[in-house]
């Protein structure tokens, strides 16, 4: 048993090396490639990575053997003076049987861990998982926490070490939910509710984006995963559950609230207790987010003003129209939205 375990470990480290070798030579780290699928930060992604290493081992072995045989055949039997006239061989039954069985055996080595991993990664989430409902929209992601009564957009906050059970729905067309550091992608399909789960294992911010072509701004449908310590997450939850900040009516933010209420924003956006719209992202605590417009731009007053000024220019095809607000109105509404911490 011990010997075979050591053998497996040896095989695993060889294959890990084969996967990582070209990447190491690129000096490849998660910092350089933050959206990498080869730097797992969750149990789900790690299971895939282990399977990929197994696959890679066989793929490289086969590649070397077969391409090698091809090169040898071409070089060794290349036409040159004095080479005898070839023998008219037509085939060899033993060889045919051999090279039918050999790939079948290798495939068995691939198939078994494949099926095991399929069932493992598609099992039911463990009890006590954090439930998150993800809704894909053209072109941004909405995150609802049914147990916590929180709705937010583009930035998914989760605590480290707790399984996250995700259910996936769409408001319009097919999208695909993908945080490579957490694991494989899962499509988000009308009339379906898909599910996946993973347990984040490292604190940090990990980018993700829609992986199924979903229209003109598919490339702009991005998101961030914020894996936080338990305390930071609890603090974030507490902040999100507070009612929205009420600005002083004489301040710039106060004027901005009036613009928000009268310029048409309320038709699409929710601010808890103030407006009910659900077409666009919930803005109750938009001031706490680090990015806006589908994690496309940093959430600074300047970027937000540019966004409100002309959304279809900032994100082609944007459903949010150009509202034609005057610059002072934009400044006011930005001040209001930024105050919603």
């Amino acid at each position: 048993m011990a010997a075979s375990a050591r053998g497996t470990r040896f095989l695993r480290s060889i294959s890990a090396l084969l996967v990582l070798l070209p990447l190491l030579s690129l000096g490849c780290t998660l910092r350089q490639f933050p959206q990498s699928s080869l730097h797992p930060q969750a149990d789900y992604a790690s299971q895939i990575q282990r399977l990929l290493e197994d696959l890679m081992f066989w793929v490289v072995v086969i590649f070397v053997l077969v391409e090698g045989a091809l090169v040898v055949a071409v070089v060794r039997f290349r036409n040159r003076p004095g080479l005898p006239e070839p023998k008219m061989t037509h085939g060899h039954t033993g060889l045919e049987i051999g090279w039918t069985i050999a790939p079948a055996v290798i495939l068995a080595f691939i198939a078994v861990p494949t099926v095991v991993t399929i069932f493992k990664t598609q099992s039911k989430p463990p009890a006590g998982a954090l439930e998150v409902k993800v809704v894909g929209h053209q072109w941004w992601w909405e995150f609802q926490y049914p147990g916590l009564d929180i709705t937010t957009a583009s930035e998914l906050h989760v605590p480290i070490g707790q399984p996250v059970a995700i259910s996936l729905q769409t408001a319009d067309v097919i999208h695909s939910f993908w945080f490579p550091a957490m694991g494989g992608k899962r499509d988000v399909i009308p009339t379906h509710t898909n599910a996946m789960w993973f347990t984040p294992e490292k604190i940090g911010t990990f980018p993700g984006q829609c992986a199924e072509f979903c229209g003109v701004s598919h490339a702009n449908m991005r998101m961030k995963l914020m894996v936080q310590s338990r305390e930071d997450f609890e603090a974030w939850v507490a902040a999100q559950k507070r009612p929205p900040v009420e600005p002083d009516s004489t301040s710039l933010a106060g004027k901005g609230k009036q613009v928000f209420l009268t310029a048409g924003c309320v038709a699409c956006h929710t601010i808890a207790g103030i407006s009910p719209g659900t077409i666009g992202p919930n803005l109750t605590h938009v001031g706490t987010r680090t990015s806006l417009a589908g994690a496309l731009y940093p959430n600074t007053p300047e970027e937000m003003a540019k966004w409100i000024q002309d959304p279809p220019v900032r994100k082609p095809g944007s459903i949010m129209p150009k509202l034609g607000l005057a610059p002072d109105q934009i400044a006011a509404v930005v001040a209001y939205l930024q105050s919603l911490k």
């Binding site: 699928s37 399977l51 990929l52 696959l55 494949t114 991993t117 399929i118 990664t121 494989g184 992986a211």
Partner: peptide
């Protein structure tokens, strides 16, 4: 063959 394996494919597709 690599993306014939569904878990790997879910990262690759």
């Amino acid at each position: 063959v690599m993306h014939a394996s569904p878990p790997a494919d879910l990262q690759q597709t």
